[in-house]
Design a protein around this nucleic acid. Sequence first.
DNA 1: GACCCGCTCCCCCGCGCGGGGGAGGCGGGT
DNA 2: ACCCGCCTCCCCCGCGCGGGGGAGCGGGTC
Lengths: 220, 220
Amino acid sequence: MPVTVLLVDDEPLVRAGLRAVLEAQPDIEVVGEAADGAAVIPLVRRLRPDVVAMDVRMPLLDGIEATRALLRTVDAPPKILVVTTFENDEYVYGALRAGADGFLLKRARPAEIVHAVRLVAEGESLLFPASVRRLAAEYGEEGGNRAARAVLERARLTEREGEVLRLMARGLTNAEIAARLVVGTETVKSHVSAVLAKLGARDRTQAVIAAYESGFVAPG
Amino acid sequence: MPVTVLLVDDEPLVRAGLRAVLEAQPDIEVVGEAADGAAVIPLVRRLRPDVVAMDVRMPLLDGIEATRALLRTVDAPPKILVVTTFENDEYVYGALRAGADGFLLKRARPAEIVHAVRLVAEGESLLFPASVRRLAAEYGEEGGNRAARAVLERARLTEREGEVLRLMARGLTNAEIAARLVVGTETVKSHVSAVLAKLGARDRTQAVIAAYESGFVAPG
DNA sequence: GACCCGCTCCCCCGCGCGGGGGAGGCGGGT
DNA sequence: ACCCGCCTCCCCCGCGCGGGGGAGCGGGTC
């Protein structure tokens, strides 16, 4: 049985492109399209797709709200793949926080798009696509922490949030981080929440994974 | 002010060796020695060392019990560095679980020993020394998961525990892991607890860090 | 047969974590 | 003067996590 996909994007051109790429696969079937977030829920109820490829910026109901509504009102909801133009879109992080399973850049190569759909359909999350992982490599070994800085910028982490993430990635608890930074635990909690939101992580474990996968911290 | 160290080992030779290595450093001072775990607590109360270098296998009171007792009865307890002969010693994991801050191989080079003492004195934990981290490199890139298998063996993780750790390192919750493995959440909790104990990790975040640091899972 | 071990599932319990709010100070930018 | 981003701290709340037990079962060893 093929993977069924519902396309949600306000630009017909993008929908057509995604459809062309996905329909070229024998095991992927596009079962419907929607032009805005408001139309998604009834369509999902009727078509029951495995995956919804959802734009973030849309009229009426944006991708974040649509994702939230979908997960709240539909039982056995489909996997949600957030489609965006910018790697740096805060809306993406909002959508991931709302429960989306991964994100996908519009300028990704067809093979990557297909791969992303298959992955989320299998239940994998795709928070840190290859493009992000390659950062460290791009900057080279001798870049020192230039790659880390780049990731910082992409995720728009503040300096303090970066410090907190680094300590999280050393296995410290909030209380220990607070002691280390000589601030209150509530302050650390604020920073941690900000880091989770910006990285699209659900908990500190996923944030640490993100730190390793992005090259923000390196093993050894 | 120098880092003060208390040596606890039943073998005088080992104590002498550690003392020679550490005293060679201007910023490290060995303030006392003990031959078994039972003598540790009163000595710590009197000498108030920054670091206790503690053997695991000792008569009367072993390193695990001594660590536990120390942390329970002494306020502002010193950092505890577990000293062992075998990388594979389950006692080590027990000691780490009991609250020790790091472990150290007796066959480590002097520079490594000094480094370890300074690190734990600064409040860093040292769960995964360089010797373990180098595993992946030893086995080479084309080793595939041979390095991972080696780590598995060293930590004595069972096959199932290895699967669970791998899923933890993908950011899954216990419930999600349970669904993936088609078992109950209580079962997963058992495996997770076993993994934490064997890796000397305090929580799943530290376990994931261990997985990355040891090469059990690799970024990218 | 007795034994150990790995996998499975169950109980109770405390606590750290993370969500969702808000709020004040402080420096920089227009 | 104004706003805004950052850092700091506070509240309440639910839940997942991890610790501490125990227990049954199959498969291997001795």
